[in-house]
């Protein structure tokens, strides 16, 4: 029966029963937690670094059409290069350890964030800038009372998308150069022919991806950006 083979597995593919017992084993002996924390740490570091650089730069470029016209070809040139293509350089520049992984995640999150925040600030209705000129907002007020809040809905959407990408890429980044993380668990499981470990890692990645996205959706419902949904 088909359900029996799902339960017991076949020679190649582990069954549900074995996956469940491996999941139990890995979570009780702390291995899964350790790998998850390691991966989350890398994502957080690389992602924050990308946010800290890409969002301000994007908001700035969106308001400076002329500079953007110069910079944009470079961005569009670099953007389609897969973050994984940077792996050799990451290892060359940053050696072994966490830092090449940070770099790969940074690259993966940076371009979507940059492009979305550029669009977000470039598409602010000019009428708000006329009002700002009329109310004589200072440069600083113009940034934090106009550009930032007006761009916020777009930025949050970009954060959501690029956090997903970072989480996707961390696994790939951990397949090289490190000895921890869920990506490492997958590679290690593959090498040891423990497909049940691979599946446990995949399940964990999916679950955390879902949780991260739920957090980001929460962010979208904040008072500060709700206006976008209802604004005509």
């Amino acid at each position: 029966m088909w359900w029996l083979s799902i339960w017991n597995g076949t020679e190649q593919v582990p069954g549900l029963r074995q996956i469940a017992s491996s999941l139990y084993e890995l979570s009780t002996n702390g291995v899964l937690l350790r790998h998850t924390v390691a991966s989350l740490f890398r994502v957080t570091a690389g992602f924050y670094l990308a946010v800290a650089l890409a969002v301000p730069l994007g908001l700035f470029l969106g308001r400076q059409a002329r500079i953007n016209r110069l910079v944009n070809p470079f961005v569009q040139f670099l953007r389609p290069i897969s973050p994984l293509a940077w792996v050799p350089f990451a290892m060359l520049w940053f050696g072994i350890g966490d830092r090449p992984a940070f770099f790969i995640i940074f690259i993966a999150a940076f371009f979507p964030l940059l492009i979305s925040s550029t669009t977000a600030s470039a598409s602010i209705h000019p009428i708000y800038f006329q009002v700002a000129a009329n109310l004589h907002l200072t440069k600083w007020e113009r940034i934090h009372r106009l550009v930032l809040p007006a761009g916020m809905p777009g930025i949050i959407l970009a954060l959501r998308v690029s956090l997903g990408i970072s989480w996707m890429v961390v696994v790939a980044a951990e397949m090289i150069a490190v000895k921890s993380g869920l990506g490492y668990l997958i590679i290690d499981g593959r090498n040891a022919l423990r497909l049940d470990f691979v599946i446990v890692a995949m399940l964990t990645i999916g679950t955390i991806g879902l949780l991260l996205d739920l957090c980001m959706t929460r962010l979208e419902k904040m008072e500060a950006v709700r206006w976008r949904l209802e604004h005509k």
Binding site: I127, Y128, V131, N134, R145, P149
Partner: peptide
């Protein structure tokens, strides 16, 4: 001060 034809209140405030 200019009052615009279309809504120019800051929607985030």
């Amino acid at each position: 001060v200019f009052v615009f034809q279309e809504g120019a209140l800051f929607p985030w405030l």
